[in-house]
Design a binder for these strands. Structure first.
Lengths: 109, 109
DNA sequence: TTTGCTTATCGTCGATTTACGATTGCAAAG
DNA sequence: CTTTGCAATCGTAAATCGACGATAAGCAAA
């Protein structure tokens, strides 16, 4: 029995869905906002700021990294995270693309 | 054992995450795009256009409706779906809000 | 090398998602 | 009233998610 059929959609749809999915959890939205505010590359500080354990935060970071929205660089014993400019440029493009496809405002059933 | 901690984030973060999550599947992105193109309220036509069964499409529509992005109205034996102007206005607001928080482009680790 | 700190990964558990067929529900038509 | 057709819901199964503690891995300093 097939449980997933993602392959049957366009590459753009999959890409947009992947970005959206990465943002589809409050913790990951919060992480992005934290990284945006203190644009310096925090790392374990995220754990302090979030009501989650270290391993959970690490998991969320991994997903954001997989979606290309976040970069991490090793800096001695700690890891330096920051938002990925290219990843967010693409995300913007995809989101704006979708929003641009929507009818203006005068639609109804 | 706690499996979900959504409660610990701001209302906006949760709201944005909910919208993103609704868009976090290629089928739902495809549905939104279909509804945007043929702004007329299709219904079972979606099933014809998508590589998914009727029940699966119905499930996805339910999730989009729960996220406030889609409206459905019964019209005789069929159901008429269309995008929700207010829902998308809010979605735009939330997404733009997040994108506006991000540093311009000159950031790096 | 050993210690200590930071982060990643592993293993686990329950909850949720994704998908389907089958069934139910409902409204118009006959 | 019964049939017909469309859509929602139910039940189910596999996969993924979300969270945690525990453990491993990496690096710097002692």
């Amino acid at each position: 029995m097939a449980t997933h059929k993602r392959e049957e959609f366009t590459a753009e749809e999959q890409e947009l869905a992947a970005v959206a999915k990465a943002l589809g959890h409050p913790a990951r939205v919060a992480i992005v906002r934290l990284l945006a505010r203190r644009r310096a590359c925090v790392c374990g500080e995220l754990v302090l700021e979030l009501p989650l354990s270290q391993s959970t935060v690490s998991q969320h970071l991994k997903e954001l990294k997989a979606a290309g929205l976040v970069q991490g660089e090793v800096d001695g014993p700690r890891v330096c995270y920051c938002l990925s400019p290219t990843g967010w440029a693409r995300a913007r493009q995809l989101l704006d693309g979708l929003l641009a496809e929507l009818p203006a405002a005068d639609y109804a059933c």
